[in-house]
């Protein structure tokens, strides 16, 4: 039994560290901040974390193959705006509209994937361009006065409970695919050495393309969650600065920016730490003048530790 525990601890160091940190922070905050450990605040927190965490799941896949997708927030906004446009202006029903939001994310992800995998373009440049396209598309479709609101039934269906279930489902499914399937193992191979992967007969181009599609799907799902939160969609619902939260969630969760390692599960826990910071600072009434400074400092510190650990592991050949 103790052998099994040791093996589990050795295989899940990152998970245990993340859970330990979150638990310590949770206990301290529960004891020091009166309104922290309330059902209302904790469900608010989960609802706030959900879109970032879902996008961090997609970002994890992309990072694992050694890629980079900085278009996520814009793709999220563009997908949401297009879906809401279909529902409110073209009369598409809410179920189909929700599917359209996710498919739009997938389509924009496919464009990213095609340009990167088939046309061999640089991921940063492609996704930076997609960021601009996404924002432009969302702005055009939003129209000059913004899209009308959706019926209340949309927000009622995607309520806090549903959002938490979606987050758990996305995390479990994507973590399972990444760690327990052939497809997932191929992603790690590509991240470790793309050339060797090609030589060994793996169709890396299709896999890279599919990875960006998955990242787009995640952005679409985040779009659905955000749309439910405000009852409509807007071009400014995905600020470009949000990409820092997404990527840092993954990196704090132990996902390597150079590819080949990381887990979806840990990236979601990273999102809890990154987004939790905002909630905690709100509850502590930290002046806004300090909020961004503290948040940026903590993210840099945490990413520095993650990077240091990765370097140490690389030295040891782990």
């Amino acid at each position: 039994m103790s052998e099994k525990l040791k093996r589990f601890a050795s295989n899940n160091k990152q998970l245990l560290i993340m859970i330990g940190v979150i638990a310590v922070v949770f206990i301290i905050l529960s004891l020091t901040v009166p309104s922290f450990a309330t059902i209302r605040n904790l469900t608010n927190l989960l609802q706030m974390i959900a879109p970032i965490a879902v996008m961090a799941c997609g970002a994890t896949y992309v990072l694992v193959i050694g890629g980079m997708d900085i278009s996520n927030p814009s793709v999220m906004a563009a997908s949401a705006v297009f879906g809401v446009y279909c529902m409110t202006t073209l009369g598409v029903n809410l179920v189909l509209g929700t599917i359209i939001i996710i498919l739009t994310g997938a389509f924009l992800g496919l464009i990213n994937g095609f340009a990167i995998a088939k046309l061999k373009m640089v991921p940063m440049v492609v996704t930076l361009s997609m960021m601009t396209i996404g924002t432009g598309l969302a702005t055009i479709l939003s129209g000059t006065r913004g899209l009308p609101r959706l019926p209340d039934s949309f927000s009622e269906f995607f309520n806090k409970t549903a959002v938490i279930i979606i987050l758990l489902a996305v995390m479990l499914i994507m973590d399972f695919i990444l760690t327990r399937t052939k497809f997932g193992r191929k992603l790690y191979y590509i991240g470790n050495n793309a050339r060797t992967t090609k030589v060994s007969g793996i169709d890396s181009e299709s896999i890279i393309m599919l990875t960006y599609v998955i990242s787009g799907v995640c952005a679409g799902i985040a779009g659905v969650i955000n749309t439910a939160s405000i009852g409509t969609a807007r071009a400014n619902m995905g600020p470009q600065s949000q990409i820092l939260d997404i990527i840092s969630a993954a990196v704090i969760g132990g996902v390597s920016t150079s590819g080949g390692s990381g887990r979806v599960r840990d990236a979601v826990l990273g999102a809890f730490l990154v987004c939790g910071l905002t909630n905690v600072m709100n509850l502590l009434n930290v002046s806004d003048y300090y909020t961004t400074l503290i948040k940026g400092g903590i993210i840099i510190g945490a990413m520095g530790i993650a990077s240091f650990r990765q370097q140490q592991a690389a030295k040891k050949g782990v």
């Binding site: 940190v21 310590v24 301290i28 600072m281 002046s287 300090y290 503290i294 140490q312």
Partner: peptide
């Protein structure tokens, strides 16, 4: 050691936040 460092970081974070919260200008 690294784990301890991570926990220390978290504690510093929380205390820094509490301190800043209390420092908020009237």
């Amino acid at each position: 050691m690294k784990r301890i460092l991570a926990i220390v970081l978290a504690l510093v974070m929380v205390f820094a936040l509490v301190a800043c919260g209390q420092q908020a200008a009237p």
